[in-house]
Every structure is written in C-alpha cells, then in structure tokens.
Design a protein around this nucleic acid. Sequence first.
DNA 1: AAATGACGTTAGTGTCCATTAACTGAATTG
DNA 2: CAATTCAGTTAATGGACACTAACGTCATTT
Lengths: 201, 201
Amino acid sequence: MTGPDTATGRSLAKASRRSSLLAEAARLFAQHGYNGVSIEDLGAASGISGPAVYRHFAGKAAVLGALLVGVSRDLLEGGRAVAADGGTPGTVLARLVDFHADFALSHPDVIRIQDRDMDSLSPGDAAEVRRLQRAYIDVWADQLRGLHPGEDRAAARFRAQAVFGLLNSTPHSTHRADADPAARRERLVRMAVAALSAPVG
Amino acid sequence: MTGPDTATGRSLAKASRRSSLLAEAARLFAQHGYNGVSIEDLGAASGISGPAVYRHFAGKAAVLGALLVGVSRDLLEGGRAVAADGGTPGTVLARLVDFHADFALSHPDVIRIQDRDMDSLSPGDAAEVRRLQRAYIDVWADQLRGLHPGEDRAAARFRAQAVFGLLNSTPHSTHRADADPAARRERLVRMAVAALSAPVG
DNA sequence: AAATGACGTTAGTGTCCATTAACTGAATTG
DNA sequence: CAATTCAGTTAATGGACACTAACGTCATTT
C-alpha cells in the first residue's frame, strides 16, 4: 500500500518532492536568511535528510536560484500580460499596481528573499535574475514614459523602483493580529498610484 | 616621531581605530552582507589583523550592533527634532520626508544593512533596535493621525512603513553614472509626499 | 525475473571562520 | 625608572556545514 503521493509513479513523486523542497526553502530562507539555513534543515523540512537534497538540486545555491529565477519570471510574465491588455498609461499602471500588490501580498517570502539574498546567487543565476528584473522594470517604465512625457527613461525606471520599494515593504511590516488585509491592500495600492502619478515639480 | 593620529595619546588612537572599524564595517557589510565578511576582513580593512578587533568590540555581532543601534538612534533623534519644531501635520511630514531622504541618500550603506542583516543582531541589540524603530515610526504616525483623522493608529504606522520602503529603495537602485542626484532626491521626496497624502478612498 | 538506475541512507572530508591562548613591545602611571 | 596596562601579533581550537563516498532498496525496464 503506497501513499497517495507515490501512487502515480516515481517521476511524479520526484516532482512533488522537488516542489516541497522549494516551498520549504522559501519559508526557511525568508525566516532565517539563506546563510541561516543548512542543507540539513532544508531536507529535514521535507522529510528527507541532508545529502538527499543533492538528488534534486546541484547545490544549495541552485535551490535559491530556482526560487529567484522563478519569481522574477512570474513577475515579468504577469507584467507583460497586463501591458498586453492595453489601455491608457494610467489604467495600465493601475493594473500593474494591482498585479504587483497581489503578488507581494500573497508571496511575501520570496519577495523578502529577493531583496535580501540576491547576492548569494551563482553568477549565472544572478545575471539571469538581473536580466528579468530589468525587463520587468522596463514594462513599468514604458507606461511611465507615457504618463510623464517630460521625464527621461532613467527617471521612469527610478520611479518604478521606488514604487517597488513601497509595494515590497509589506513583508517587513509587523503584521501583528493582521486586522484587515483588504484595507491594508487598498491603502498600499492608493499610495503606489499616488507616488506613480506625483508630478515632478 | 609618532604619526598625527597617535600624537594625542593612546585613548584617542583607540577611538579613531574604533570609528575606522565601524566605517569599514558599514562599507563591507553593505557590499557583501554580514555573513560574507570575516573578522579577518574587518580588521584588514583598518590595517590591523583579525583578533585585534576583539580589543574594540566583544565580537562580530557587537560591531553590527553598534552600527544598527547607532543608525536607529540617529533617525529617532533627528525625527524628534523635526517634530519638535512644530507646524501643521502636513509641514512636519514634509520636513520628516526631507530629513529621511537626506539620511537615506547620504548613508545608503547602513540603510542597506538595516533592512538586510537585522536578524544577525544579538537578542539584546535586536530588541533595542526594534524599540528605537518603533519609536521612530510613531513620530511619523503621530503626524499622520493629524493628516488623516479617519485612519487608526495601525493604518498610520502602515503608511509610515510603506513610505520608508519607498525612501529606502535608493540603496537598491543601480546608480549607474548617477546622472543628477539632486533631481533624483527631488523626485523621491515628491513621491513620498504624494504617498503620505493619498486619500484612502 | 534479472538488470538497471534513481532516490534515499549514514559516514566521512575538507574548509571556513569566530573566538581564545600565549606572548610582545610600547605608552602610561606611580 | 620600575610596574602595569593595553593594543597588537601569531598560533591554536572547536564547531558548523557544504559537499562527496559508499552503500542499500525498491520501482521500472527488458
């Protein structure tokens, strides 16, 4: 009598083990930092022990790489989908804010890991993540160029990064007795839109 | 013939060595992360080697503690001074934004360390830093309660933290060929004020 | 049903690194 | 000027930990 997870064969069991490892890694890295988590901890969280992790990832840095390349890809893909739906720069930016806020609020762990443990990545993964992040910023910057015709590309990118800082601040917030998540989200979105629309002077 | 630094006696030499260690630690921790810097690196950056650091600090964590308690104290002190000057909530908040933007732009290293290596602090230092940070947030929240009478204290704190995320985003920005720092600062301040003032809807 | 190979196990192994030990030489002090 | 303090040195020491080796076991394959 095999368990329900293994009922579908070895390759499926492996896939589920791998995603369990990634999910636990996200939780542990967010809580203790990449350097505060050992390979042993990582395996134990998924019910296997230490070296077995190497059957799924080439090393500890590869686990971090899979997480961060994944989140960067998801953000870029989602952002491009939003932009592809068209509309005025103002409405596209509003939808980008909605998308990003949803993402940050539903995946606070990876957000935290991304702006904390970026440079524990292997050189190759780091380059890939930077490339994806630049492309995502440019999705925003393209719309911002339309909203603020007087500002150059560097200014638009700067604005986008500042708003990411605002939207990504929630993982750092204390969350004690998280009173009203919907109101929190609404407030965050309003502030982001206001910052994006603020005239330069 | 003693060098100019040591001409004034041993205790002054010690004080200058200590501040050199702190300055180099800020630079190194910001660049490589707390765990990416060894005690040996730390000493070498100030011209002494490894274990000599223990003549100035109880341990590696104590160096980080001195840095982060220092920055938290400076922020709280500066924020309180701004608030003590009085004015309407709107004008006080504008001055708080100016103050914080200046701080973040002139000390990007410690800002980066603060929201990255917080939990490598000793328990005691961590508690102290959290206490100072809460007090600083409350300086902002007090003014925000005046600006948005309809929002409760938690909402005001949340707003403050989101704006810190925005203002503290500059250390993460790429800074390549830093075109116009003054314009950058101005844009940051405008966005922060807009986010602080945004009506909740 | 044998052969294969993937996934897991427990023991190393080597390295890095924070901290301590033992000692030295100069500045301070009485 | 002798005694002491103190910032510095180099040489252990001890632990954490990423990764490798050697081996077992069971599902898949032929």
